[in-house]
């Protein structure tokens, strides 16, 4: 019950964060010198063309009214129209978002599945060689710029070893399109196309590794320090005294209470993960939001840019809500008290 209330409170705060985000973004996009319509059309457009576009997109109305329209649109999940193509921003983002989502989910999976065990290993052999190896790996993966790692992986796997494709999401002219969820790995299973699944995986692997490295390093570091913290607790000593075997103690009694800090950090660092996704997508020509975002930015299509930032923000907020839920599942104290600490 307390937990439900906790989640509800988090949802409300998240909505507030999104409203705040929309304001910030709107102010940046509208309150700057220059006229969005003029910017989008460029210096060669005539005065009439500009006025026309302004009228069409509501840019001639008072700023508060514009924001009202923007927010009303958002509430319906409508991000407005591109200043350039006049296509709904929604359609453009929908087409690209699934690819980004697939990449980010794969990244989180890799980061957690590798990072947490590495942290456990390091904590278990604290100050011995496995710990030192993990610490070095964690530091290097945290400080290698994603785009650089992406390039290195491309050189290594694509040009030197010739084992994995280096650009795109599926082979060119491949007769499969993810139509259900938009995620290749899932849709190929639904469509019973193991060949598409394998191809999708081959294409996904390098970008996901490049993007996952930094987060994985953080996961490993934080899991390690959290495990070390827990390992000195009385209850671990007590389970030792009662003869609970070592592996149960480490993998059950120590691991579960250690989970909250890495989960929390995963949520907080998610924003920078989205940022890195932009560069990684660019390097691997991954058909995600980044290419769209960067194109619209260079074309000064402010409505589209606002859409991209808003979607990133919603993505961040949703991931953090899921993490709140997970934290509650892992730690009964959060469930019972209805708060984190």
């Amino acid at each position: 019950m307390e937990f439900l209330r906790f989640l509800l409170r988090r949802v409300l705060w998240s909505l507030l964060v999104l409203v705040g985000l929309s304001m910030v973004i709107f102010i940046i996009a509208r309150a700057v010198p220059g006229d969005p319509a003029r910017m989008a059309l460029g210096p060669t457009a005539t005065q009439e063309q500009v006025a026309d576009l302004q009228k069409k997109l509501g840019l001639d109305r008072p700023i508060v009214q514009q924001y009202g329209l923007f927010i009303a649109g958002l509430a319906h999940g409508d991000l407005g129209r591109s200043l350039l193509t006049e296509r709904p921003v929604n359609d453009d983002i929908r087409d690209t978002f699934a690819a980004t989502l697939e990449l980010v989910l794969a990244t989180i999976f890799i980061a957690v599945v590798l990072g947490v065990p590495l942290g456990v290993v390091a904590a278990y052999w604290k100050d011995r060689w496995p710990d030192n190896v993990v610490r070095i790996v964690a530091i290097f993966s945290a400080v290698t710029p994603s785009f650089f790692l992406a390039l290195l992986l491309q050189i290594l796997a694509g040009y030197v070893l010739h084992i994995l494709p280096t650009t795109g999401r599926l082979p060119p002219n491949f007769d499969f399109a993810p139509t259900h969820t938009g995620l290749v790995l899932i849709d190929s299973l639904i469509a019973l196309r193991p060949d598409a699944f394998l191809e999708g995986l081959r294409y996904l692997l390098l970008p996901a590794i490049a993007l996952a490295a930094a987060t994985m390093g953080q996961m490993a570091r934080i899991t390690r320090s959290s495990m070390i913290d827990v390992s000195s607790q009385d209850y671990i000593e007590a389970s030792r005294a009662f003869g609970v075997p070592e592996w149960v103690r480490v993998c059950k009694y120590m691991l579960r209470p250690s989970f909250v800090p890495p989960l929390t950090i995963l949520g907080l660092e998610f924003a920078s993960l989205i940022g890195n996704a932009f560069v990684v997508e660019l390097v691997f020509a991954w058909p995600g939001m980044a290419a769209y975002g960067i194109r619209t930015i260079l074309q000064k299509d402010l409505n589209a840019v606002m859409g991209v930032v808003m979607v990133s923000g919603v993505f961040f907020v949703l991931v953090n809500l899921v993490i709140d839920l997970l934290v509650g599942l892992v730690d009964p104290r959060v469930r019972i008290r209805g708060s984190r600490q």
């Binding site: 009385d234 209850y235 671990i236 000593e237 007590a238 389970s239 009662f242 003869g243 609970v244 075997p245 149960v248 059950k252 009694y253 579960r256 209470p257 892992v330 730690d331 009964p332 104290r333």
Partner: peptide, 18 residues
């Protein structure tokens, strides 16, 4: 001295099991 994230039954029966 009690693990905060497991029920009493869980902790006690684990001890007994091993």
């Amino acid at each position: 001295s009690l693990n905060p994230v497991f029920t009493i039954a869980d902790q006690m029966s684990t001890i007994l099991k091993y």
